[in-house]
């Protein structure tokens, strides 16, 4: 085989004309590096990062269940609970890291943070100067938002994924959705002073509860 023929095959693999070889192909990899610099970068639409996180989360718990399924009967409840908590916290941390990045590329920096926090964290936030609180209708739970934009929906009576929205004047903005951790869902808004209320809906937008925020 000539050099030209070798290059033609490597380029064909890099361009996706041929299936991925089973063994590493240094020449094709080198041409893939070239192609990786060919296209312009385009800022992804706002909200895509949230959807990626939701999709990743939706798959990760399923994988965990499948792995543990056969052995579940042999395990104690305590071990399963500990594992679930560890997975939930780990997932929450990763998601928070993923979502936090969107703050630099989207306006405003609005997002939901499904991080495991305690009721003490909520109480501490509520006592900060400038923090505002509200009670969600339909007995769904409560809301607190601090002056720096950090907020929690807490005492939630639902454990399935819900979406959090904020009202700001005539605008209603969806921050994202996630499953509450221990009845608490964290969120962050870029312009907390503009927020007049918080709403919680199902993930497809059906209203569950709404809370006007009281003045500090």
């Amino acid at each position: 085989m000539t050099d030209d023929e070798r290059d033609d095959r490597a380029i064909a693999r890099a361009l996706g004309m041929e299936n991925e070889p089973s063994s590493p192909d240094a020449e094709a990899d080198a041409y893939r590096e070239v192609l990786a610099h060919l296209s312009d970068e385009v800022a992804p639409p706002a909200g895509l990062q949230d959807r990626v996180v939701e999709a990743a989360l939706a798959r990760r718990p399923a994988a965990t269940t499948a792995i543990s399924g056969a052995a579940r009967r042999r395990r104690t409840r305590a071990r399963v609970a500990a594992m679930s908590a560890a997975v939930a916290v780990a997932a929450g941390v990763v998601i928070a890291v993923l979502i936090a990045n969107s703050a630099s590329t989207t306006k405003p920096a609005n997002r939901v943070e499904p991080i495991a926090v305690s009721r003490d964290d909520v109480a501490a936030l509520a006592t900060r100067p400038g923090a505002r609180t509200g009670t969600l209708s339909n007995g769904l739970g409560h809301v607190v938002i601090a002056a720096d934009g950090q907020g929690y929906v807490y005492d939630l009576t639902r454990s399935d994924p819900v979406a959090v929205w904020v009202d700001a004047g005539s605008r209603r903005t969806r921050l994202g959705s996630a499953a509450p951790q221990g009845g608490i869902l964290g969120f962050r808004v870029g312009h907390p002073d503009d927020v007049t209320g918080v709403e919680v809906t199902t993930t497809n937008g059906s209203e569950l509860g709404r809370a006007p925020l009281t003045a500090p």
């Binding site: 296209s39 312009d40 970068e41 385009v42 992804p44 890291v97 993923l98 936090a100 990045n101």
Partner: peptide
């Protein structure tokens, strides 16, 4: 993952759009 998304999401989305 934050770094991965921040560094490459634009390139991935840009190529997919193209």
């Amino acid at each position: 993952m934050r770094e991965v998304w921040g560094a490459h999401a634009g390139a991935v989305y840009g190529l997919a759009m193209r």
